[in-house]
């Protein structure tokens, strides 16, 4: 079966800093894939290269067999992306953003209108009908970004930190949506720092450490009989960082 996302040897160097060092990942279709790693490990860099937003120094990325860099129209039509911290059309309202993006993706006008309505009400953004995106809170920005990623009914979702700054109620909604998406045959790759969340949602996981894949595979296989957190700290943490306190804070 063609993998939903196949990353082979993706490499990116910023000046001296190797942000991604021959990253290989295979996301099987229908899987819910979690990407974990410390701050600055290279998750955003890898996901950006896999979705055509950052040109790699080497390596390739394929979405359902279509190469992101040599056949972008076909590859990118099958993916929905939620990047971390990028701007949206800031002077539009949520509904206008979705209308704009739907039309940009070539959807028919009435399809866009119906989907936008549904997404806005499920994500509880329809109360803020008159609010421009520039006035949204951080969590609302994540939600409109997710709505934008889902709008054109992609087969693969690539989500960079989708739960950051999202309140617990909305997080529950998003989890339900994402689980439904996978149950319906879709595939998801998400990055997160929250091990409990990845354990709860994902069936596959990859640990990225300093630009390399430290471990990857089905969740059960990667974590063995330990918790994912222990596995993660064992893989990327140095021996004593976790236990050191701040001397001047103790009284």
């Amino acid at each position: 079966m063609t993998p939903a996302l196949e990353i082979a040897g993706l490499t990116k160097t910023f000046g001296e800093k190797v942000a991604a060092d021959h990253v290989d990942l295979t996301v099987p279709p229908g899987s819910f894939y979690g990407l974990v790693g410390q701050n600055g490990a290279g998750k955003t860099t890898t996901l950006s290269m896999a979705t055509g937003l950052l040109r790699p120094d080497g390596g390739s990325a394929r979405i359902f067999g279509a190469d992101v860099w040599s056949d972008p129209s076909r590859a990118l039509a099958m993916v929905g992306v939620l990047p971390d911290g990028l701007a949206m059309p800031e002077r539009l309202t949520g509904r206008e953003v979705l209308t704009y993006l739907g039309l940009l993706r070539g959807l028919a006008k009435d399809v866009v209108a119906a989907r936008a309505q549904e997404l806005l009400s499920v994500l509880e953004l329809d109360q803020a009908e008159k609010t421009l995106v520039i006035e949204y809170s951080t969590g609302m920005r994540k939600k409109i970004g997710l709505a934008a990623a889902l709008l054109h009914a992609p087969r693969l979702l690539v989500l960079d930190e989708p739960f950051e700054a999202v309140d617990p109620v909305s997080a529950a909604t998003i989890k339900t949506i994402l689980r439904g998406f996978v149950a319906g045959g879709g595939s998801i790759v998400l990055s997160s720092h929250v091990m409990a969340l990845v354990e709860q949602l994902c069936d596959h996981v990859a640990v990225i450490d300093r630009g390399r894949v430290a471990a990857a595979g089905p969740l059960e296989q990667v974590r063995g009989d330990r918790s994912l957190e222990d596995t993660f700290v064992g893989l990327v943490g140095s021996s004593d960082t976790g236990s050191r306190g701040l001397s001047w804070l103790s009284r």
Binding site: T51, G52, L53, P72, S73, L76, V79, V81, P83, G85, L86, A87, M88, P89, E90, L101, L104, R105, G106, A148
Partner: peptide, 15 residues
């Protein structure tokens, strides 16, 4: 002036 909003344009190469 639009800043990183450009990512949306990159994702729809046909438009």
């Amino acid at each position: 002036v639009d800043g990183t909003e450009l990512w949306l344009t990159l994702l729809s190469p046909g438009a």
